[in-house]
Design a protein around this nucleic acid. Structure first.
Lengths: 246, 246
DNA sequence: TTGCTGCCTTAACATACGTTATTGTCCCGT
DNA sequence: ACGGGACAATAACGTATGTTAAGGCAGCAA
């Protein structure tokens, strides 16, 4: 079940079987199960461990005093919530589930141990951190410059590619287990306008969305309307990383 | 002249004189001077070094194909542009100056050397990375949920506090050496609307802005209109960090 | 079956913000 | 002292998106 994390990291670098074993190990300890719409950790609390999502979807979010909410990031299976957070004294935002979720809570000490002895994993975790930062930056670009349909299309492309990276797509389809209200909170739009925009993408045959199942019949076309360029996901593995002994 | 970086890091932890010496050292090598509105590094290029801003303002930005531009982050004196970028093969965005700038280019090897031998610096650099990520998240919140005046007020609060953290404020004033067009690109607004919104804040006596000089007569009041909470800057230094030998 | 309840859909209307355009002001070079 | 260029300030008008409200459909409990 770490397989998602391993699969993700192997987009960046080849891991030795020892590396994989360590990762498997880490993700069987400290298991925690949550239902849908529960908080994993809340703003103001002290971060104790790094949370690894084994299954289900979660999100980072923040409320303003008057109740407006922004979803700041989506967490998918294989995602780590904030490597090294424990440097900070308290959380400045909350993390909550969107669906039922299983996580592995990796204690600080365990992380330090691993990064001391497994430089390839350390390197790969750096890569995953940097990609997450790039995703956050791209959200800034979307919210600042893209209009509703571009923004929605962009998000769907991002999620699809991230899911494909951990083996959770099936051809041109994947699950999208979130409500329109949650999409709205992530996109900085109203639910009404998210609905309108979904209809628009449907009418243009760019997406098929029935229940929780999303199909993107022509990914290139969807990328085009979003001005989506996958470079920021840094999925190009280089030759220089292929020398692990397996 | 590293003093800005040192001063910033000391908001998080006390540094030994040895630590400070190392940081001073690092920031006198690889100096580079740039004029206003020049690029430090461009999207697509391979990152070679970590850039430390010694003086002047810069920004991270990204253009869409059709010419829209989003400023993703501001860099102030004492800021490091992307510790560990060199894990990635190419830049997914550009970094450019807003004013004349002096930077120190710190080669990869130097960073690794320092973080190997000076754990307190390593720790402090982690803190600075995490704060930068928090700032990026807060921009997501602003762009997604805050209206024009809240957004502008929030940005001004952020910049003022960051400048204060590196000793670049004078009472309730600081420099704001950016054009309204640049504020617009950062805030996801048009220049016309930025202008309107500045007038609004001026009329409400929340800011005084003459030339490149910003004064915030009542920081609390400005924070209130922005729903600004400084917790995300993580400026609360803890007792546990006070044990360095100086 | 019935009737909730949660979510999606659609419509009519309101508004914050964008666009285009003009004028004003300061600074700098000659 | 003059003219040009860059930037700031305003005005008139257009539009993307928000708000409020109502109806529809599926799933679930009794």
């Amino acid at each position: 079940m770490t397989s998602h994390l391993i699969r993700k990291l192997e987009q960046f670098t080849k891991l030795s079987s020892k590396d994989k074993h360590v990762l498997d190990q880490v993700s069987t300890e400290g298991l925690r199960q949550l239902g849908a719409r529960e908080d994993i950790i809340r703003e103001g609390e002290r971060p104790q461990a790094v949370n690894l999502i084994l299954s289900g979807w979660a999100c980072r979010y923040k409320y303003l005093e008057d109740g407006r909410r922004q979803i700041i990031a989506f967490f998918l299976p294989g995602d780590l919530c904030d490597n090294h957070v424990f440097v900070l004294r308290e959380m400045d935002h909350s993390i909550g589930t969107l669906t039922p979720v299983t996580i592995a809570q990796i204690p600080r000490q365990r992380i330090e141990e691993v990064s001391l002895h497994h430089s390839r994993i350390t390197q790969a975790l750096w890569w995953e951190s940097l990609v997450n930062m790039a995703i956050q930056r791209e959200w800034t670009v979307s919210l600042g410059q893209r209009d509703a349909s571009e923004r929605l299309a962009h998000l769907l492309c991002e999620l699809f590619l991230r899911l494909r990276g951990v083996g959770l797509t099936d051809g041109d389809s994947c699950e999208l287990p979130v409500k329109q209200a949650e999409l709205a909170d992530a996109l900085g739009l109203s639910t009404v306008h998210v609905n309108r925009t979904l209809q628009e993408l449907r009418a243009a045959k760019l997406i098929v969305l029935k229940g929780k199942m999303l199909t993107i019949p022509n990914l290139e076309a969807l990328q085009d309307v979003a001005q989506f360029s996958p470079n920021y996901l840094h999925l190009d593995r280089e030759g220089r990383h292929l020398d692990a002994n397996d």
